[in-house]
Design a protein around this nucleic acid. Structure first.
Lengths: 219, 219
DNA sequence: TCACGATTAAGTCAACCGATTGAATGAGGA
DNA sequence: TCCTCATTCAATCGGTTGACTTAATCGTGA
């Protein structure tokens, strides 16, 4: 039962921290504030359970990352060996808003994730870990197979763009939901659809060879 | 000459601050550090010239915003009353990487702008100001005219997506340039082309009416 | 039963923060 | 010339932070 108590405390700390981080940014929130918000009169709670702020951030991201991976596994099974890029984009996109929807309202994770991805220090920790996720890699492989006509460099660029789009669009939707300024019909399902449409359009857009490049190599 | 001295000091402070903010995030950098990095042995420099950190951030954003607006004015004149969406997207996109290119290397503004846009506090200050820019509004109007077939809500959503895409893609390109990990052919002109292609694709993507929505309103 | 060890609480410490104050500097106008 | 005042510098204040140390709490296994 000692383990239960510790696990409960870890859980409370992670929840409080996620909210505070989402509201104020990573470096604007001290370990003390987190411990206090988590009901731990102690100032060393975060340090004791997570080592430091970085460990806490990593733990939160890992927890959600695993849940998202689980949802993605379902979508992967549904997609099978489809050659329709829309299926694969859905496999990439939908697990995120679906997970956020499962958190109830208000949720904080999307905004928290943006803070993490934007922090010059934490950024590396998370992007590394994301690429170790098996189902995500399978999804990216399947996506790449639908885009083999695209030059590798363009494909990589647009992949990054899609990643940014998912992260920040979900965060803004979450913020709108929390502030009550979201349109009535706004829902996570709609967000998933809108993102899928947009990213399919983005990835399949024709590549125009630039006037600038031609000018520069010209006579 | 007193004005010159003050203007010079303001300039040095803004440059140092932009770099520090881009490297470490807004709330991770204290006014003291900025003053010190700007060669002002004094801890009061930022407070004296800009009131507080928010004033400093606003001053930096305004300075670059005006320069970007000036470039956009040129593009607006070139575009005229075109009905090609690609022209209007270029008018929206190109001023940003062109301005960043004019700053030389390494530049810090794109990464700084990301930090500002993701700070829960500063965010509002900047987005408000951006919408007061005349040429930006004209660009958005022209863009809207090319997309009148699109439902207003979808148009707004995709506009936000385009904004995120520009901001974060430029920041990542800037980071790659600074770290020397950028592909050889990488240049700001290429970034402008890649962004324009992607955003045109994103904005003109077909809207699929979702299965989810239909299910929910069904029998 | 009882000592052990994991967990939580409480207190301390130097370092740093933003803000304020007052003095030193030096260019510009009377 | 000499006063004025924008600018810079130096010192100080209360408050906060992260790291550290010590003590209290309380399941758990011997």
């Amino acid at each position: 039962m000692r383990a239960d108590r510790a696990a409960g405390t870890r859980e409370v700390i992670m929840t409080s921290a996620e909210r505070l981080f989402a509201e104020h940014g990573l470096s604007a929130v001290s370990s003390r504030q987190i411990g206090e918000a988590a009901g731990q009169g102690n100032v060393t709670a975060v340090s004791y359970h997570f080592g430091a702020k970085a460990g806490l951030v990593r733990a939160i991201m890992t927890k959600h990352g695993e849940e998202i991976e689980q949802i993605r596994q379902q979508h992967l099974a549904d997609v099978g060996d489809s050659h329709d890029i829309r299926d694969w984009v859905g496999c990439l996109v939908r697990p995120v808003p679906e997970h956020l929807g499962s958190l109830g309202s208000p949720s904080w994770h999307a905004r928290f994730a943006v803070q993490v991805m934007t922090d010059p220090m934490m950024r590396a920790l998370v992007t590394d870990e994301a690429l170790t996720r098996k189902h995500l890699r399978q999804t990216l492989d399947g996506l790449g197979r639908c885009l083999d006509a695209l030059p590798a460099r363009i494909r990589a660029e647009r992949g990054d763009m899609a990643r940014h789009l998912i992260t920040h669009t979900c965060a803004e939707r979450e913020r709108a939901l929390a502030e009550g300024t979201a349109p009535l019909h706004s829902s996570w399902e709609h967000t998933a659809d809108a993102l899928t449409d947009a990213i399919v359009g983005l990835l399949t857009a024709p590549v125009t060879s630039s006037r600038h490049t031609l000018d520069r190599t010209g006579p």
